[in-house]
Design a protein around this nucleic acid. Structure first.
Length: 491
DNA sequence: GACCTCTGTCATAGC
DNA sequence: TTGCTATGACAGAGG
């Protein structure tokens, strides 16, 4: 550079008036130990003090502003500049290219020195950096008002799901948990199962999704299976083999309705609901039928089915009108009169003469289901089929719930994404506003620095002319007064 | 006929 | 061990 003593003068002067310089923003104090270059108090020192006080005031203001705005820097945005300390001034000043545009420091007698000697990363005081560069933990409090409750997706999702569960009330627990209503757990389970039926086409459609029963077609929606049906359209050997002993019950078919009359299936009823009896049951089983008539009180979603009427294998019915009528076993009324073929399991159940409705096979709690089985003597193929039906029915419901949950997650995540985008735009606007304010402050600060600089005096009391000296920063981060000719020479 | 969506089913893991 | 639930993967039906 130059002969250091004369040309490159560390800005560590014996200058009481500048002592405060090292206290900019409360940062690292400036060393005033340089030799051969001292600042002397002059009559205008009081003016310098005043200027300095003004400087301090503006830096304090700067500090305050930064405290207000810095918290955005740990959010989705990277810090504008790295925090690099400037030994001499104890300042770190942030900078962006646009900040000083329009702030002509050189015209203030500083001749570009501010820009030149202060790297962009060092134009904010150290009091600014800590605020400007961290505080991520407080970010949430600075969020857009509408997004204050925003949480990480998972947490939000969990909360969402809780809300969903709460809002759905007893409609359905999407995680499969029964909602206690003060009744026993068995009741809750059954309620849950029945709710599932109402909410999805699962229950046990076992084959088709369209609505199978409705108040309009209540009567015709009865699926009837005739045990004497000659035209079973499939011939699975084991089923056929078991046909011979079909419907062999324990001899007391009344046991079944007696027991399950007490299972509180939370079914609902609508007038004119189809008779839902099934083949082996004695015609006089009103409790059973009441249990299975319902569901339809809830509005049907499109393509949802009401399994209560779809799953009964045999329906002589208590109405008596169709008892023994032996209507077709393989076509079931669909929606508004359309016919739909029976599902595989329905056909199999019909072939094996399963003596209870598929709905019960699937929806009964395990204990009740086992108890149900004890009331009938089923052969191995029948038992295997019943268990398969139960497994598939459960899994079908689970799959439907799973897909429903998946869709809900997607919807929720999309909403959260929109929220985050809004937040990002909001933060970008605030950031822009902050940068503009900061540029104004820096402009004023530069002017004040220039003013201070113009009031410095050397040992002989001569001012440091801006024409002769400029502030420059060395690699060690310290600020120096550099003779311009030396600086030019060095270059 | 290719493609997409919906649905049921199976296999598997975890509780 | 058994039963249930959740979920990915696959296949079939239908648009």
């Amino acid at each position: 550079m130059c002969s250091a003593a004369n040309c490159m003068l560390p800005l560590r002067k014996n200058c009481e008036g500048l002592a405060n310089l090292g206290r900019l923003n409360g940062g690292a104090s400036m060393s005033i130990s340089a030799t051969g270059f001292r600042m002397h108090r002059h009559p205008q020192d009081s003016e310098m003090d005043f200027t300095w006080q003004e400087l301090m005031a503006i830096t304090e203001l700067q500090d305050l502003e930064v405290q207000n705005d810095s918290q955005y820097e740990n959010g989705p945005y990277p810090p504008m500049e790295p925090a690099v300390s400037v030994g001499g001034f104890g300042m770190n000043q942030s900078h962006t290219g646009a900040l000083t545009q329009g702030c002509d420091v050189t015209s203030g007698g500083y001749e570009g020195s501010y820009h030149e000697v202060m790297p962009p990363c060092q134009r904010l005081g150290p009091g600014m950096d800590p605020h400007y560069a961290h505080s991520g933990s407080q970010l949430a409090s600075r969020l857009h008002p509408n997004t204050q409750s925003l949480q990480p997706p998972l947490m939000s999702f969990l909360e969402h799901m809780n809300l969903m569960s709460a809002s759905h009330g007893l409609e359905k627990d999407s995680f499969g948990h029964s909602h206690s209503t003060g009744l026993g757990p068995s009741h809750s389970k059954q309620q849950h199962a029945a709710i599932d039926d109402m909410e999805s086409d699962s229950g046990l459609s076992l084959g088709s999704s369209p609505p199978l029963a409705s108040p309009e077609n209540g009567v015709t929606s009865v699926t009837t299976y005739a045990c004497t049906e000659p035209g079973v359209p499939y011939a699975e050997d084991e089923m056929e083999a078991s046909m011979g002993e079909h419907c062999r019950m324990t001899g007391d078919s009344h046991v079944y309705p007696m027991d399950f009359h007490h299972h509180h299936h939370p079914v609902n009823h609508y007038p004119g609901a189809p008779s839902t009896s099934y083949f082996p049951m004695a015609p006089s089983l009103p409790p059973i039928h009441q249990q299975h008539q319902s569901h339809s009180v809830y509005p049907l979603k499109q393509q949802q089915i009401l399994p209560s009427t779809a799953l009964h294998l045999n329906s002589p019915g208590t109405s008596g009108s169709r008892a023994g009528s032996c209507t077709s076993s393989y076509i079931r009324p669909k929606g508004h009169g359309a016919l739909t073929p029976l599902s595989r399991d329905e056909r199999r159940a019909s072939a094996l003469k399963i003596p209870f409705p598929l709905e019960k096979i699937v929806n009964l709690p395990v204990d009740d289901f086992n108890e149900l089985l004890t009331h009938y003597t089923l052969n191995e193929p029948q038992l295997a089929l019943v268990r398969d039906i139960r497994r598939r029915g459960k899994n079908k419901v689970a799959a439907q719930n799973c897909r429903k949950r998946k869709l809900e997650n997607i919807v929720h995540l999309e909403g959260e994404l929109g929220q985050l985008r809004t937040q990002r735009e909001h933060l970008a606007r605030e950031r822009l506003d902050f940068q503009r304010g900061l540029a104004t402050i820096k402009c004023r600060l530069s002017e004040l620095y220039a003013k201070v600089f113009s009031q410095l005096r050397d040992e002989e009391g001569h001012p440091y002319s801006l024409e002769d000296y400029a502030l420059q920063q060395t690699n060690d981060g310290n600020m120096y007064l550099v003779a311009r000719n030396a600086s030019l020479d060095a270059e």
